[in-house]
């Protein structure tokens, strides 16, 4: 778990980044705090042709079919208020209201790919449901699959590759979670309190003997 601005590790449940003080309020001040109405494929920058958009839309539909809890969204463009693509993705996934996503799939189950043609960069942001199952390395692997296409300006093909690769990773994680769900639960479980840790240590080292009353008898 990292801060979108300073990219330093933050603890679970941090209201603000303990390192740089970043929070969504800062992004709301830049982009607005109202919800933004979007569709899953929002080619705001106009990087894709009509036929290419249908291909990407098909890939997104296929992803939703395979993962009944999740959805994948794609946004091309940069926020009006500036800032890097990582922060913008964080803000957008929290403020977006996707019109073509069923209500039983909240943004917690969403994955957002932001492609910024101005800075020529792309990022991936995901909701809390996927916190135990996705890592930064996973998303880098997915973006690497699309890198060659995006260099040539073939944004639709690169996006389809990204969606496909992420589907493979998530399918594997889903199978692992079915076999060993506690492994993933530990990743997001709240940290144990310090006193509790000390008590467990003491109980583990001290032998439990008979009570005094039983001994006198």
């Amino acid at each position: 778990m990292k801060c979108p601005r300073c990219v330093q590790v933050i603890h679970r449940g941090a209201g603000l980044c303990p390192h740089c003080g970043f929070g969504i309020a800062e992004m709301d001040a830049r982009h607005g705090k109202d919800n933004v109405s979007l569709r899953r494929l929002a080619d705001v920058a106009g990087l894709m042709k009509s036929r290419e958009r249908s291909k990407v839309q098909g890939a997104l539909d296929d992803f939703s079919r395979r993962f009944p809890q999740l959805f994948f969204a794609v946004y091309t463009g940069s926020g009006k208020g500036g800032g890097n693509v990582r922060q913008f993705g964080f803000w957008l996934l929290n403020r977006a209201a996707f019109e073509d996503v069923p209500v039983d799939r909240p943004n917690e189950a969403g994955i957002l790919l932001v492609i910024d043609p101005e800075t020529k960069s792309a990022s991936v942001t995901w909701g809390y449901l996927l916190d135990p199952y996705l890592t930064e390395e996973d998303t880098f692997l997915c973006l690497s699959r699309a890198h060659a296409y995006w260099l040539e300006g073939r944004f639709a093909e690169g996006t389809v590759r990204t969606v496909s690769q992420l589907g493979k990773i998530l399918a594997k994680r889903a199978a692992q979670a079915r076999r060993d769900p506690e492994r993933f639960e530990r990743k997001v479980a709240p940290p144990a309190k310090t006193g509790e840790i000390a008590r467990r240590i003491r109980e583990g080292h001290r032998q439990v003997g008979p009570k005094t009353s039983e001994v006198t008898k």
Partner: peptide
């Protein structure tokens, strides 16, 4: 999962790649 950084839905920060 407790919310972070004030985000009510998401705070999973993935990789950023440049294709410049």
């Amino acid at each position: 999962v407790p919310p972070r950084l004030g985000g009510s839905h998401a705070a999973g920060i993935g990789a950023v790649i440049s294709f410049g």
